[in-house]
Design a protein around this nucleic acid. Structure first.
Lengths: 168, 168
DNA sequence: CCCTCAATTGGACGCTGTCCAGTTTAATTG
DNA sequence: CAATTAAACTGGACAGCGTCCAATTGAGGG
């Protein structure tokens, strides 16, 4: 079912993802889906979270700032690898499944180890940065293969500021 | 009609904005709206663009980087003054009306004068930064009156990087 | 073989955006 | 003031949506 939903989004974009369309693709009545999923929102959440399973996390002992860079760059790569899903992230303002939670916790720990004081703010800033960048990387003006270095660059500006001057 | 739509969003959030709800509030049949607006998307665009009318632009001769800061900070202030509209911006990936176009042109000119090479990328990065920041400024974790200085700070990181090392 | 339980179904409810054809209202013109 | 024109509005409809209820099917275990 997740596969069907993913294919649907890949073919028709985020707007094409409807319960009924998924059911149609599975050759099943729309209601049947509700035995496997709480609702459309839940489906979207599963879809988004499923994708985050591919995000790399750094080795436990590594430098925290480098670790954050690893996570965020991998997140960005994952997002831009599935540009049709990015609008869904924007609508949901992020993901909420177990993978998202796990990544958030890793990120929080790294931020704390990096000496950042306002951890929740910093986490949100990083997430917004990644999703926002991914959102306009898949846009019509930019070629979809915008170099990751451009992302990394502004990511480093953020990291520098966070770690050097946490409170203003 | 724009007023009715704005009130509706203010009361019920972005999801409450439907053609039929606007019509109901105006005491009018839903179809009547189509004499004034091309469709729901157009309504949203007008709504978003209308809001951008309040964004301040710098004096023509001023320092370009300071000018960009003026525009973006004013944009951020305007967005956070109407947090219910921010989800609509995210869904539309920005505004498209005349005010948005005008602001974009001013921004482009300032970026060019500031010596930025990748003007479209930079413009998008700035817009994403403002909208993204506004998106999580209105979130449940942060108090809605998050100090503008926090926004300005990361804005300056972006500006510094853009003007000093445009291409990597 | 029967029974249980999950998966599935038909059908419906209320909602959405949008279009067509016709009617009312307001403005402009003679 | 009357007549014409243009704009605004209406009733009704279409296709689609998410979701729920009650009833049915299907397979597995006792």
């Amino acid at each position: 079912m997740l596969t069907a939903a993913r294919d649907l989004v890949a073919e028709q974009g985020a707007d094409g993802l409807s319960m009924r369309a998924v059911a149609r693709r599975l050759g099943v009545a729309p209601n049947a889906l509700y035995s496997h999923v709480a609702g459309r929102t839940d489906l979207v959440d599963q879809l988004l979270d499923d994708m985050l399973a591919g995000v790399r996390t750094p080795q436990p002992g590594a430098d925290p700032v480098a670790g954050i860079e690893t996570i965020m760059t991998s997140t960005y790569r994952t997002l831009t690898a599935h540009p049709e899903l990015v609008p869904l992230y924007l609508q949901r303002q992020g993901a909420r499944g177990p993978n998202a939670v796990a990544l958030g916790e890793v990120l929080d720990a790294l931020l704390a180890r990096a000496g950042v004081e306002e951890v929740p703010d910093a986490r949100r800033a990083l997430i917004v940065h990644a999703i926002g960048f991914a959102a306009f990387a898949g846009s019509d003006v930019l070629p979809a293969d915008m170099p990751v270095t451009a992302f990394t660059k502004s990511l480093r500006w953020l990291l520098t500021g966070m770690t050097k001057a946490p409170t203003l």
